[in-house]
């Protein structure tokens, strides 16, 4: 111990600094694979899209399909529901979005059935707007899936989707 006390390591020493720096880079590079392995893997990423047959859905009905492990609501809206969604003054909304932007084809509303508060699945035809209501913490959504009352911060998300033909929607 006596020897080392006399000559403490000189921290400005170039070779020690260079070694430490190179070592840090190496450790960083080695750690990345250990972190990245938890990200979605190649087989999960490949399942990004799903096709849904909507030919059997009557006006007023909705179906729920699984996409990327989450429920997607596909609702065929009635005339009244469309009207009530489109007549809302945007100023009243917590998260202002036009129904025209959320449902390109007004008859079909496609959205992730996940409450934007903490991820529960809202119940259909319930709540103050007779549309969707999340039972976990009482968020009320309107017939366009927009948040109107309760703790959720944003409207339910609309995924990327296209109508492949009149009876098939491709989500993702």
């Amino acid at each position: 111990m006596s020897e080392s006390d006399k000559k403490k390591p000189n921290r400005r020493d170039f070779i020690l600094t260079a070694t430490t720096a190179a070592g840090a880079v190496g450790v960083g590079a080695a750690v990345w694979p250990l972190i990245d392995q938890m990200n979605p893997d190649a087989s999960v990423k490949a399942l990004a899209s799903t096709e849904v047959d909507i030919s059997g859905v009557e006006p007023g009905q909705s179906i729920t399909v699984l996409w990327r492990g989450k429920p997607v609501f596909i609702k065929r809206r009635t005339k009244e529901e469309i009207d009530s969604a489109r007549s809302v003054d945007l100023k009243e909304l917590k998260h202002p979005e036009k129904d025209e932007d959320r449902a390109k084809n007004p008859e079909w509303l496609v959205m992730l059935g996940v409450c934007t508060h903490l991820g529960c699945v809202p119940l259909a035809d319930k709540g103050d707007y007779n549309a969707w209501f999340c039972p976990c913490h009482g968020s009320h959504y309107d017939t366009s899936g927009r948040i109107r009352k309760g703790p959720a911060p944003t409207n339910m998300e609309v995924p990327k989707y296209v109508f492949v033909n009149n009876t098939t929607i491709k989500i993702g």
């Binding site: 694979p33 250990l34 990245d36 392995q37 938890m38 990200n39 893997d41 190649a42 087989s43 999960v44």
Partner: peptide, 30 residues
Amino acid sequence: ILGMHYIAHAELAFGSVEHIMRDVNYGWLI
């Protein structure tokens, strides 16, 4: 880490190792 991706089941174990080798990010390396 391998335990996160491996499946201890006689029907699935071999395939889960191949899944690690092919699909998991850097799975082959680990």
